[in-house]
Design a protein around this nucleic acid. Structure first.
Ligand SMILES: NC(=O)c1ccc[n+]([C@@H]2O[C@H](COP(=O)([O-])OP(=O)(O)OC[C@H]3O[C@@H](n4cnc5c(N)ncnc54)[C@H](O)[C@@H]3O)[C@@H](O)[C@H]2O)c1
Ligand SMILES: NC(=O)c1ccc[n+]([C@@H]2O[C@H](COP(=O)([O-])OP(=O)(O)OC[C@H]3O[C@@H](n4cnc5c(N)ncnc54)[C@H](O)[C@@H]3O)[C@@H](O)[C@H]2O)c1
Lengths: 216, 216
DNA sequence: TAAACTTTGTACTATTTTTCACAAAATCAC
DNA sequence: GTGATTTTGTGAAAAATAGTACAAAGTTTA
């Protein structure tokens, strides 16, 4: 299933969805060609970094011309597997979880939240943004049955680890963790932490301690 | 206002709030001492990295013993300015914005969302999580009056840039941007992007292309 | 067609971040 | 008190990421 000859650097891999989204915008505004300099201005990544990122996939551009938007777009669509739908489960339909269900990442992505789970009887049985909410007792069975490999975790921190253990057991391979808990998982499972409180605090730290610097 | 002799690496600065939060947990569970190895296990950061991070602030530990939890905690409280409250404004009380208002980052932080703004007349005048919601027309004046320096941006992408320009004009120094738009700001303004759709997509990319690797 | 211009792809360099590995200093056990 | 054990703090190496600068290859203009 890994179909690159050479491993793409992680930093590059994290920028690919960003490039892809901007290319879609260009495409729908009818643009035919684009240079690394234009892309750079739009996504705020150095143009040499963009050219290097692209070069991992071969010579996608043309000297003196730039990149063909359609070609690049269809190339990245394949690379980012935009043609297959990745099914996602959401655990914990609270403040954050509800926001994600309403949004559902469909506008830009190849991902779809198919089911949600919660312990709250007032929520179980309801539907938010067309996503049905089931009880946690049914989670393991349903995730296995639907062959869901990605989960978004928006539960209270104290229950994050035990639920994670169940997710791993149910064959989930990737977890987007919004709880402050740092999860223990086998090496083959990928966890991305998005720690909103830490993000806010580190922004404040930078403001106070690096008054006139630029970054990210 | 910058009170470090030596500049702390950015990567270190981003981990500080994480350390601080775990130290608070240790403290409230009555623990007196902690080693870099224990911290490492808990926050999932290599122990050498933790020792190096701490060492930028001087010799905070004791050989053969580890770190004194109370000492470390009070040191980081000062360093992270936990004693001053940083006032935050939230722009865009939609799905995400509402979730943040309910949460309000008070449990862990020195930050508080003091005011929110929206154009929706149905929301203006209401209060969510004790935060009053005002109309966008009043934003500039209120932010200046309250001397708010940090803003959370949860508005639709197309209006992100013009609102950002107004925020900069109103003397905001840091923006936590949840919209997909990449913002143009003067060099002195700090923007942290949290791009949830990109996070989900890059997780999926890693799953498909780096099947058994570990990271982050 | 030719000269001027544009823009890629990458060799090379720089910077940042992480990790190894170990002497030094302290604790701990008895 | 002494030797075994623990654990820090850091020099040095490694790895990862970013950026400079330019030859090469194309496009555009006239
Ligand atoms: N809301 C925010 O802005 C915000 C910001 C930073 C971090 N977080 C973190 O995100 C997580 C969710 O935050 P939230 O504000 O949505 O919380 P919330 O309390 O609104 O929602 C949690 C949901 O999880 C459900 N739940 C509780 N125990 C469960 C269990 N054992 N199994 C399944 N579901 C269970 C609850 O019924 C509730 O619906 C928390 O860990 C929080 O620390 C939230
Ligand atoms: N909700 C999510 O899960 C999610 C995920 C990824 C990205 N995002 C991004 O976060 C942003 C907010 O998402 P959301 O789901 O909360 O959207 P939303 O539509 O629910 O909320 C947007 C809010 O902004 C207000 N608004 C519109 N124009 C405004 C203006 N000119 N000034 C002030 N307020 C204005 C609207 O009244 C609304 O309350 C969007 O840019 C979205 O792309 C959201």
């Amino acid at each position: 299933m890994a179909n690159e000859t050479v491993k793409i650097p992680q930093a590059t891999a994290k920028r690919l969805p960003l490039y892809y989204r901007f290319l879609k915008n260009l495409h729908s505004s009818g643009k035919q060609r684009v240079s690394s300099a234009e892309l750079s201005e739009a996504v705020k990544v150095d143009s040499a970094t963009i050219r290097r990122d692209f070069s991992y996939f071969g010579a996608l551009g043309k000297k003196g011309y730039g990149y063909n938007v359609n070609y690049l777009l269809s190339f990245f669509r394949k690379t980012l597997d935009q043609d297959e739908l990745t099914k996602v489960a959401l655990i914990g339909v609270g403040n954050l979880g509800t926001a994600f269900l309403h949004y559902n990442f469909l506008k830009n992505n190849n991902t779809k939240i198919e089911v949600a789970f919660d312990v709250d009887e007032g929520k179980v049985g309801k539907t938010i943004g067309e996503v049905p909410i089931f009880h946690m007792d049914d989670m393991d069975k349903q995730i296995v049955a639907a062959d869901i490999q990605v989960a978004i975790l928006t539960v209270p921190a104290p229950v994050a680890q035990p639920i994670t253990d169940r997710l791993v057991q149910a064959n989930v391979k990737g977890i987007l963790n919004f709880t402050p808990a740092r999860l223990n998982v086998p090496a083959a499972i990928r966890v991305h932490h998005i720690d909103l409180a830490v993000e806010l605090q580190s922004l404040v730290y930078f403001l106070k301690h690096y008054p006139t610097e630029t970054e990210e």
